[in-house]
Design a protein around this nucleic acid. Structure first.
Lengths: 132, 132
DNA sequence: TGAGTAAAATGGTATATAGTGGTTGTAAAT
DNA sequence: ATTTACAACCACTATATACCATTTTACTCA
């Protein structure tokens, strides 16, 4: 399971997209976790992987304030998404708003352990900035 | 496994090429990784080799932002390519666009540990500039 | 509270286009 | 002369998109 590549897909008015085949075939089953990512994008994780990796974050001390911002973002933004049998799903409103979607096109990009969805323009700007 | 030589091949409208035999016979099996390379070309690596070099980027904390740029760059630019039994494969759209392909000819060149694919004109200009 | 209405979510179908596999042609190499 | 590598072409399949219909949810006002 490694997420690769960069794909341009269209978004309907209701926030529905068809996830690219090359990304989808890396998701076991038809369920995954979609949450807020760094730099105004949304990030998708395999459910098992998500549960395994968030495990440690569930056992922090009540007095531990470190990373509280990131922990809030990660968990409050998380949604369990079910992909329909045509490979489509709806990006929840809160995440649409978080990613600042303005056009009707997004980039779906693989980042190894997870994939990300970006407003297309924002991705292009970012990619230029970090010189991809 | 050493990639060398310079070959000119044609590209179809859909971005498909027949990889030169001399390059192909250095690829173990029929799979390799095609990524964005330096100076607007795309670069092909053996899969094992690439995975070995990127493996440590797969197991970072969900809260770790430090090398996110690097991870996005490496993985979003990479594609797992399967060569068909006639030695053909399609260069993904994002990479076609990255390499600035204008004509219907590319140069496939060996660079030791990897091979590269260039828009032919760009390669000739580059080769002239660096006085090869 | 509950019926009526509007809006959104969902499921399905049709269409265009991109991807894939196969055949044939041609020129070069053996 | 036969084989091989690459090119060109065609046909079929898979995927992404747009569109429409139905269901569900939310909202309003009597």
């Amino acid at each position: 399971m490694v997420f690769f590549g960069e794909y341009s897909v269209s978004v309907t008015e209701g926030g529905r997209i068809a996830i690219p085949k090359k990304i989808r075939e890396n998701i076991k089953g038809d369920v995954f976790i979609l949450t807020k990512g760094f730099d105004i994008c949304v990030a998708g994780y395999e459910r098992d992987d998500w549960q395994r990796r968030t495990g440690d974050l569930m056992n922090v001390s009540l007095l531990e304030k470190d990373n509280i911002d990131k922990r809030r973002m990660l968990f409050s933004g998380a949604n369990e998404i079910v992909i329909d049998d045509q490979g489509r799903f709806v990006i929840p409103k809160a995440l649409i708003s978080y990613m600042g979607l303005v056009t009707d096109r997004v980039k779906v990009v693989g980042v190894g352990d997870h994939f990300e969805i970006w407003d297309e323009e924002k991705w292009l700007k970012y990619a230029k900035k970090i010189n991809i």
